Simulated scan of single mutants.
Amino acid sequence: MREGEFAALLHEHAGLLSRIAASYEADPSLRDDLLQDIALALWKALPAWRGEAALKTFVARVAHNRGASHVIGRTRRPSTHGLDEDLADPAHGPESHAQLEQKRLRLQDAVRALPLTLRQAVTLALEGFSQQEIAAALGISANNVAVRLNRARKALKDALGESA
């Protein structure tokens, strides 16, 4: 793959990659480092892509694998920062915007607190991946994905309260 094509691929999946990185790293500077690591891992992995899964699924799998390695390789710090600051809906007023931001931060922190296997599945589900796509991205069965998502939902519901 040429550099221009790779740059286009990174641009096309920038939001997905940013949100996956944010699910693994709270610190913005470390998140940037993780995004660079993900980009390097993608550059190295792309020649091995055989087209058996969608490119988006392949990209997500590489990003999650790199994120998991990142978490395993270092001690996590408590979250003090958000996922992507551009996720809030600008159509709402300041109070509504603040409430949405608080909910988003609570969800983000709750997702980060999940065990790694549950975090991977729920992050992809929040990105709109189907259970089959999640299974392909994580290299597990669709039934295993369903189990992980059910456990993650229960854990998130417990962490966020019944109103979540």
Rank of each mutant, 00 (worst) to 15 (best):
Y24T: 01
Y24L: 07
Y24R: 02
E25H: 03
A26K: 00
D27R: 09
L30N: 09
L30R: 15
L30F: 07
L30A: 14
L30P: 00
D32H: 13
D32M: 12
D32V: 11
D33Q: 13
L34W: 05
L34I: 06
L34S: 10
L35P: 01
A39V: 02
A39F: 01
L40W: 11
L42K: 09
W43T: 14
W43N: 09
K44Y: 06
A45C: 08
A45K: 10
A48L: 09
W49R: 01
R50F: 00
R50I: 03
G51K: 02
G51H: 05
G51E: 01
A53E: 15
A54L: 12
A54F: 07
L55C: 05
L55M: 13
K56M: 04
F58I: 06
R61P: 00
V62I: 15
A63L: 04
N65T: 13
N65I: 02
R66G: 03
G67C: 02
A68F: 07
S69D: 14
V71M: 06
I72L: 15
G73L: 03
R74Y: 01
R74A: 10
R76P: 00
R77T: 10
S79E: 04
S79M: 06
G82M: 09
D86F: 11
L87M: 11
L87P: 00
D89P: 02
D89Y: 08
D89F: 07
P90E: 14
A91K: 11
A91W: 10
H92T: 09
P94F: 15
R106L: 12
L107V: 07
L107I: 06
L107N: 07
D109G: 08
A110E: 02
R112H: 09
R112W: 00
R112I: 05
P115M: 07
P115K: 03
L118K: 02
Q120F: 01
A121M: 04
A121W: 04
L126K: 12
L126W: 04
E127I: 00
E127Y: 07
G128R: 08
F129Y: 11
F129V: 04
S130Y: 07
S130Q: 04
S130F: 08
S130I: 02
Q131R: 11
Q132F: 05
A135Y: 03
A135E: 01
A136M: 06
A136E: 11
A137D: 01
A137M: 02
A137F: 05
A137W: 04
L138F: 05
G139Y: 09
I140Q: 03
I140G: 05
S141V: 02
A142R: 15
V145L: 09
V147D: 01
